[in-house]
């Protein structure tokens, strides 16, 4: 690829004496290429009000004119879980680690749905906001972060559904052993990990889709397939030994397993794989933010 011609140094007649003040007195300096790690994350903090406005908008806009409103958040996972119960447990007779299938699938789909929604929604950031991005500046990262946060509301409702079902089964005397302290301590960590991973994957895809629109098809399709590569509808313990190490390379595997471990007392919870998952998440997020920052600077020129 040839290099662009460099701008000539001879400038058109400079008008007036141009000031050569030092940089400190300026509020804003716009320069072409910043380093890979110049991410201007402090800008994000300045625009935190916008972040909350976006979260609110996403939530209100999504359910304002539906008959059932936020109830959809309940109906969706309930129907999915029922389907899973019938097909995977009833027909295919997959193991649920000795748990009631309904509970088992709820504990898997609630976190998985959150992750999947984060990825699919953030992956279209640039394409769906092209019009707005082309007109006004704000840190573009505000948009995907707001999506990750507004999706939390969906997760919270599904989470409540899980807790409700869990309590109902406990009251019925099912032999389930949830770790209540584990739930209190681990939940925030696991949520942050899923949000970060979903955000990271989503913004990488969103940056790439500015160039390749067809990648977005791959995402919707890929995320469906990825569910089967993650122990959502089956426990990790039922996976044959020789495939298991491959499964554990999937950063979502330890997260889902940890969920089941603290909520339902079954599953392979171990700090080692969770640390691997956290490391993977951080790396993905960092790469994502860097790519996203590169793309946001020139995105308007290419769309």
């Amino acid at each position: 690829m040839e290099n662009p011609p460099s701008p000539t140094q001879a400038s058109a007649a400079d008008i007036a004496p141009l000031e050569t003040g030092d940089d400190e007195t300026w509020d804003l300096i716009i320069r072409p290429k910043s380093g890979w790690l110049e991410l201007h994350l402090e800008d994000l903090w300045r625009y935190r009000d916008l972040l909350w406005m976006f979260v609110r908008r996403d939530f209100v806009a999504q359910y304002k004119q539906t008959i059932l409103g936020p109830l959809w958040f309940l109906i969706q996972p309930l129907l999915t879980t029922l389907t899973f119960t019938i097909i995977f447990s009833g027909v295919a007779k997959l193991s649920t680690d000795g748990l009631p299938p309904l509970l088992f699938y709820l504990a898997g789909t609630a976190p998985w749905n959150y992750f999947a929604t984060c990825v699919t929604k953030t992956s279209t950031t640039f394409v769906t906001n092209a019009n707005l991005f082309g007109k006004v500046y704000f840190p573009r990262l505000v948009t995907p972060i707001s999506i990750v946060i507004s999706t939390l509301i969906q997760f919270a409702i599904q989470f409540a559904l899980l807790l409700g079902t869990l309590i109902w089964y406990l009251a019925k005397g099912e032999p389930i052993t949830p770790h209540w302290t584990g739930i209190a301590l681990m939940s925030p960590l696991l949520i942050v990990m899923m949000a970060a991973l979903g955000l990271g994957v989503g913004i990488i895809v969103s940056a790439l889709t500015t160039k390749y629109r067809d990648l977005s098809f791959l995402v919707t399709f890929g995320i469906q397939l990825a569910m089967y590569a993650t122990p959502v509808v089956y426990p990790l313990s039922s996976v044959p030994e020789r495939y298991r190490s491959w499964m554990e390379l999937n950063p979502m595997t330890p997260v889902i397993e940890a969920y089941r471990a603290v909520y339902l007392g079954v599953g392979a919870f171990d700090w080692g794989s969770l640390t691997y998952s956290a490391g993977f998440t951080l790396a993905t997020l960092l790469v994502g933010i860097i790519i996203f920052n590169r793309v946001e600077k020139t995105f308007v020129d290419t769309v």
Binding site: D27, I29, I30, R31, V136, D301
Partner: peptide, 19 residues
């Protein structure tokens, strides 16, 4: 577009005082 930061420049710089 460059002044309003919608896109970034290829060369040179802009310095601004105030909003």
């Amino acid at each position: 577009k460059l002044l309003s930061r919608v896109t970034s420049p290829t060369g040179g710089e802009i310095k601004v005082r105030g909003r």
